[in-house]
Design a protein around this nucleic acid. Structure first.
Lengths: 353, 353
DNA sequence: TTGAAAGCGCTACCAA
DNA sequence: TTGGTAGCGCTTTCAA
């Protein structure tokens, strides 16, 4: 004779407002606690009661309120993903795989893009922190390690992907970049190239790793690269990618001896390189063989189909998801893990001679 | 002598737990209400008090709890986006533009992928509904209109993009598909093609619109297409895209008269078509001109650079964002709007003769 | 200009 | 097996 009287006794949903546990409880003469237990599959509920409650939930299209639940449990059932560029197929693929892997576990993915801007990335991370995502996955565009401090302060677990930071003991899932460099370079050597150049990326762990692999593969065969054959790509946004590759390659073509093989940091750069080579009246791969990295373009349909190193971005997404779920389940701090995915060489016409 | 005594008098953050308004209030001898007002820029707060509070928030890295706020205001400051495939550059670009446009307004984007599966899409929509996103943007893979009923029941505003549904009075932002078809077809006619074929997409509004534009452009010039020159792409997932285009084109090449121009529903299909044409020993565009749609590939670097219709996916994302913010601000129901973006023809070698 | 009280929808804890 | 009570962190309302 208390919770059942009052003046809002009419059953059914309140005009326009979502159904609450309270509504179901009232209709069925039960308490909200019972409803809550049924919802979460709590064991000690009578079979009959459970059925009635489930039936009513169904009928009313009941949807639990995540905000209320999050407020009390401290878990939001969301994963935050920060990438430098959603358009880049590598990150799109990672996002897709990550999304698919967590979907079944009831998690949703909040995706933000930093547009390769460290400051924006910092803001986006703060935003995700404020939303109390359960775990964060970050492909960072940072140069420093500052942003990660604030995440650690909040004790939210996080995973770096693609790019890592020396001296930061954080969870990492990425490709074995040294293997990338070695794979590409060994292949060029096998194809008979003797003056191999490398167009290297910006000062990130990925670029440095590939460069290192390049050097080690050469050294293993008793070769080495001329300093002018290790060419940095421009640092400003527009100089990277295809136009940057074109420009850098023009300079490479003027060196003596001219390179007979080029390993490019990524595929867009490789496209630029190929254009420069063809424009100079040279042949690919007869005069210069080219290998890119990423294998995300429609490489089979290019003027000269491009050999490329496949980074298996799905696997990176899947591993990141797996680790993310583990970190959430673990509650307390966990010793950071590093997972390296093995790259794979895909040979096409641009390097096959 | 009430809220200031007790035994947890020590200032500073509680071990490991996030800072709350209550903590700041206690430290400063104020009430949480005052802190809340400062946070939201409420006018009637003393200048001195405001400064002290802001200072303390800064020092403690205070982050308001979104869940608590959402629980009471009913707004989550999140936008839900449902796409059929994140890897598809069209949707990736829409997501990117949408994300950029709402970011500045304090909204975050929850992205889910339906993998072109209507049932999965339905689940994802339910999930977003349960999370009480403030507005939903959907590129639907549905055949029926059912899913949208449940959204309407919850009174959450939503916007369809890319694909629409006849008879469903919903907000829509997309490309003018009839214009797409006319643009491509008129161009082929101008290039001297007289037997133009169309490889059409699945039974969606986009495909039907482009087909309609194709027919109208032909009719306007007094032409018409042979029935066997309007070829449907396979419906199973793998038959679409490049392999499907290849297969369908092989059949088209066997018709009499053979087409001298092909307008393809999208770029991957066009790639398949071009491969089939070249494999048959024919020349592009001399024997057969090809136009695709999407303009998202590195079309300049293809064996034969592909002419394509650009859909301006950024503009679609921006318009969707703008409309989304309007709908949120409007609270009550709003008369549905349709926004059509104008397509643009990008001519390359595959159709220039 | 400030704050006490109430309560958003749900779950944790413990008593019945 | 069921439910009462308390409270998560915040905003709303209204009184001081």
């Amino acid at each position: 004779m208390n919770s059942n009287d009052g003046n809002e006794r009419q059953p059914g949903p309140r005009r326009g407002a979502p159904v609450r546990m309270k509504d179901i409880a009232r209709d069925l003469g039960l308490s909200t606690v019972t409803i809550s237990k049924v919802l979460r599959g709590h064991p000690d509920i009578g079979e009959e009661t459970r059925r009635r409650v489930l039936k009513r939930m169904e009928d009313l299209h009941y949807q639990p309120n995540f905000a209320a639940r999050a407020l009390i449990t401290g878990r939001t059932w969301t994963v935050g993903l920060v990438v430098p560029d959603l358009l880049h197929p590598f990150f799109a693929q990672v996002a897709k795989a990550l999304s698919a892997a967590i979907r079944g576990q009831g998690y949703s993915l909040i995706i933000t893009s930093s547009e390769e801007d460290p400051e924006l990335e910092q803001q986006e991370i703060e935003q995700l922190l404020a939303r109390r995502v359960d775990v964060m996955v970050i492909a960072s565009a940072q140069w420093t390690v500052e942003s990660f401090r604030s995440i650690e302060e909040q004790r939210i677990p996080y995973i770096l992907i693609d790019r890592r930071f020396a001296g930061l003991p954080a969870n990492f899932v990425g490709v074995d970049d040294e293997a990338v460099g070695m794979l590409a370079t060994n292949h060029l050597i096998e194809q008979g190239c003797r003056h191999i150049a490398h167009i290297r990326g910006p000062e990130t762990s990925t670029a440095l790793g590939r460069l290192e692999g390049f050097r080690r593969a050469l050294a293993a065969h008793g070769f080495s690269a001329l300093p002018e054959h290790i060419a940095p790509i421009g640092t400003s946004g527009d100089d990277r990618g295809e136009p940057g590759g074109y420009e850098v390659t023009q300079k490479l073509l003027a060196t003596n001896p001219r390179p007979d093989g080029i390993f490019c940091f990524n595929d867009p750069i490789a496209l630029g390189a190929m254009r420069a080579i063809l424009d100079a009246g040279l042949r690919i791969p007869e005069d210069i063989a080219v290998v890119g990295c990423g294998n995300v373009l429609y490489s089979d349909f290019l003027r000269v189909p491009l050999s490329s190193i496949d980074q298996d971005s799905s696997a990176i997404g899947r591993h990141a998801a797996e680790l993310a779920l583990t970190l959430i389940a673990a509650k307390g701090p966990v010793r950071p893990t590093t997972t390296l995915v093995s790259p794979r060489l895909v040979v096409r016409a641009s390097s096959l001679r």
